[in-house]
Amino acid sequence: MKDNIIASEAFSSGRKSFFLDFKLARNKSNYMRITNLVKYEDGSTKKARIYIWQEDFELWISAFASLFHSAAHASDKEVTVLDLFNQGKQKKESGIKSWDPEKRPREKFLESGPGEMTLAELVAMLIGSGTADANAIELGEKILASVDNDLSKLSELSHTELAKFKGMGLAKSSAILSALELGKRAFSIKGLLRRKSA
Score class of each variant (00 low, 15 high):
residue 94 S to E: 13
residue 69 H to L: 06
residue 14 G to N: 10
residue 127 I to G: 05
residue 88 G to Y: 02
residue 25 A to S: 15
residue 184 K to S: 04
residue 115 G to H: 03
residue 164 K to I: 02
residue 9 E to M: 07
residue 86 N to E: 11
residue 111 E to L: 14
residue 148 D to N: 15
residue 80 T to E: 12
residue 23 K to M: 15
residue 69 H to T: 12
residue 160 T to S: 10
residue 104 R to P: 09
residue 83 D to P: 12
residue 158 S to D: 02
residue 137 I to N: 01
residue 54 Q to M: 08
residue 94 S to W: 02
residue 129 S to I: 02
residue 123 V to E: 06
residue 165 F to D: 14
residue 78 E to G: 07
residue 158 S to F: 03
residue 130 G to R: 02
residue 45 T to C: 12
residue 83 D to T: 14
residue 10 A to K: 13
residue 60 W to H: 14
residue 67 L to R: 12
residue 78 E to Q: 09
residue 188 S to F: 10
residue 64 F to N: 04
residue 160 T to M: 01
residue 19 F to V: 08
residue 7 A to K: 14
residue 66 S to K: 07
residue 136 A to R: 02
residue 184 K to W: 00
residue 160 T to D: 14
residue 138 E to H: 10
residue 16 K to T: 11
residue 62 S to Q: 15
residue 62 S to V: 10
residue 154 L to T: 00
residue 182 L to C: 06
residue 28 K to Y: 08
residue 39 K to H: 13
residue 97 K to A: 06
residue 122 L to C: 05
residue 2 K to H: 08
residue 39 K to R: 11
residue 173 S to D: 04
residue 146 S to N: 09
residue 160 T to K: 12
residue 34 I to Q: 02
residue 10 A to M: 14
residue 15 R to A: 14
residue 65 A to H: 09
residue 16 K to H: 12
residue 100 D to P: 05
residue 26 R to L: 13
residue 156 E to M: 15
residue 122 L to N: 04
residue 96 I to H: 02
residue 89 K to N: 04
residue 96 I to E: 09
residue 160 T to R: 09
residue 26 R to C: 03
residue 72 A to V: 07
residue 44 S to E: 10
residue 177 L to T: 00
residue 86 N to W: 01
residue 154 L to G: 00
residue 95 G to V: 02
residue 190 K to I: 07
residue 135 N to P: 00
residue 154 L to N: 02
residue 185 R to L: 10
residue 46 K to Q: 15
residue 118 T to N: 00
residue 56 D to N: 12
residue 133 D to N: 12
residue 117 M to A: 10
residue 45 T to W: 05
residue 117 M to L: 15
residue 161 E to G: 05
residue 32 M to W: 11
residue 58 E to H: 06
residue 104 R to S: 05
residue 192 L to T: 03
residue 115 G to S: 06
residue 187 F to V: 08
residue 150 D to V: 02
residue 137 I to T: 14
residue 21 D to A: 04
residue 106 R to W: 10
residue 131 T to I: 08
residue 64 F to Y: 11
